[in-house]
Design a binder for these strands. Structure first.
Lengths: 203, 203
DNA sequence: TATGGATCCATA
DNA sequence: TATGGATCCATA
């Protein structure tokens, strides 16, 4: 998989340049770059059928490799806000220091509207001082054309970036990073990514 | 329809108490209270079938009455942010003064995740200084039980309220208000609200 | 019940 | 193509 850009959307007191964040990013970039489809093909090939590919399986291999790197999957931070809580986060990396804090990552594969919730959940983690950094990975609009209709994508979230970037949270540290990814190669010979029976799919 | 609560989520320099906002709220409360189902029954009756009622038609009568009060429906604010823009807003009320600003209202009937986008869109309007006030109307969790699965509801958005309330936007005025509404009466004799064929509905 | 998701629809 | 929506699924 190809990384188009890494955007620091929120960056409080230069947390983006914190060595813990930069080390994690170096590792994460390598892991994303290693993603392949089909398995064993070295590159991520995508069948260029408009709205033809399901999204469910895309992130699976990345999550598996992050788990090997020490990330915890589907982890729920205790934000102790109210009785009801934001739900679990795709992956969190515990910092191996005395801070008891984490770096969190969401790979958005739901509807674009759920990308808004994903960023808000990461911000909740900053506000609860459980996270020093939250990352959201989104496909480019180039890639999006070939995925399930209306899934989250970088360009469609962009008009809303200012909602978060112009917030002045009263915090000493924290950053939110958006990463735009894309297939390496379009290939008619590549198998379509499977779709589920979720949503309005006619089984 | 019954109003359970009116919550000022964001309130910059006391905009919530601005006479223009308070006048609008008085009128809006009356209009919401007047909503009825079935038509002519004076109260909003809801058939208590779990996940049985569609949401599409719920807001229609309110929008019709707001139109009579001078609101513009499905209006798109020109936020001139980027090429891509947040989409249209359910209803906006132009202020009849020289400010060229509006009050905006969204009645959330989409998925809960799209409630996050709705608030973000209202915040975008504040940041662009096109709005002095944005309102989001959401059903209570009591009402939600009888509506399409996963539609927006007050209690499920609540854990995220702090994301907006602690944002400290650098603005001179602006408020975001969340209104929680509920049926007046549960009634087995009341017809179910129709569902569409959207999403994953099997036609 | 609670929460994130996945999918296709409607309309401009 | 672009954008908000509406619906049902999966899992804990």
């Amino acid at each position: 998989m190809k990384i188009n850009q890494i955007l620091p959307l929120v960056d409080i007191n230069n947390t983006f340049n914190d060595i813990r964040v930069q080390n994690m990013l170096a590792e994460l970039q390598e892991r994303i770059t290693q993603m392949e489809h089909p398995k064993g093909s070295k590159l991520f090939h995508l069948n260029p059928t408009i709205k033809g590919n399901g999204v469910k399986t895309i992130k699976e291999t990345l999550m598996a490799s992050l788990k090997e790197d020490g990330w915890l999957l589907e982890h729920r931070l205790d934000l102790s806000v109210t009785q009801r809580q934001p739900g679990p986060i795709d992956a969190v990396l515990p910092l191996n220091d005395s801070s008891n804090k984490y770096i969190a990552l969401e790979w958005e594969t739901g509807n674009i509207s759920s990308s808004h919730r994903a960023v808000n959940k990461l911000v909740s983690g900053l506000l609860a001082e459980k996270l020093i950094c939250g990352i959201l990975i989104l496909p480019s609009s180039n890639m999006y054309r070939y995925l399930t209709d209306r899934v989250g994508n970088f360009d469609e979230l962009r008009p809303y970036f200012q909602v978060w970037s112009s917030a002045n949270y009263a915090l000493n540290e924290g950053c939110i990073i958006i990463i735009e990814v894309e297939h390496d190669v379009l290939s008619l010979e590549s198998p379509l990514l499977a779709k589920g029976t979720d949503g309005r799919a006619l089984r």
